[in-house]
Amino acid sequence: MSRPFPLRLLPGLVLLAATPLPAADSPPASSPWDQAALGLFKDAHASFAQQAAAADREARFGEAVTLINLQPKTDTNLDRAASLLTAIAATDATDELGVSSRYYLARIAQIHRASPDNAAALRIYRELAGLSSPHALAQRAVVHVALLELFDPRLAPAEIRPGFDRLAARGATLTDPSALRDFHLVMGDAALRFNLGETIALDHLLAADRAGIVRATTQRDTWVRIAELARRTGRNDVAITYYRHFLDKFLRDSRRLMITERLAALTATQPAEAAR
């Protein structure tokens, strides 16, 4: 007769198998701002919220900007974030944290709410733009004003040109390189899309490039656009320069053949340039 399987051993084996492994789900970065920079919003938010001093404006700012990306996204979180930002701005509306808080109040209205309030966002962006502050986000507000004003589908075609010219004048005061670059990228794109003139589009894109484009994807498209606009407007020297920039930097791009052909055609008509 066979002996029964020693079932009393099973619980022991099951317990052995179920021995918990050390959890590795802990945040890798040290400071809450480092965590936020890594996209670990929940961990960063918990750290900011633990910093109890209500008067610590930077911690409250951290709490607010991490709240807006906590999942699930809720009106309660957004309301709390807006309330924190409003309080920070109430202390001083024009210092670093004050300007940043106002900027993020506009972002909540425009981007984070389930029902965006572009009018409210635009009002805050205009206020920030009007500060003529060197703060990066105050200057960036001008970029958002341009986006919201120029691309508003309710804008009548006849209103686009005057609006564009007003914005161009405002952009002339920008000094922050990122804001300057992004403003000219928006203006160049708008000039092209709304047929405001290829020379105007070209000048804005050239200004954007001078300000410093940092992403390769933006750079390669912008250089092609500059070269194409320059060729079409007869500024062959600029076109040749930018076609060459492109060919020198982007060794693998499906546009190389077309650009090589265009460069050859241009240099054939400009022998002195070709000899360079």
Partner: peptide, 28 residues
């Protein structure tokens, strides 16, 4: 700088899509 540029390029394209589709505000 890179983050802001990335944001700008996406917001620019988004604005153009909404303009062309004649949608004044985009729900999240």
């Amino acid at each position: 700088s890179e983050l802001l540029e990335a944001q700008t390029m996406q917001e620019l394209r988004r604005a153009w899509i909404l303009h062309e589709l004649e949608v004044p505000d985009s729900p999240r």
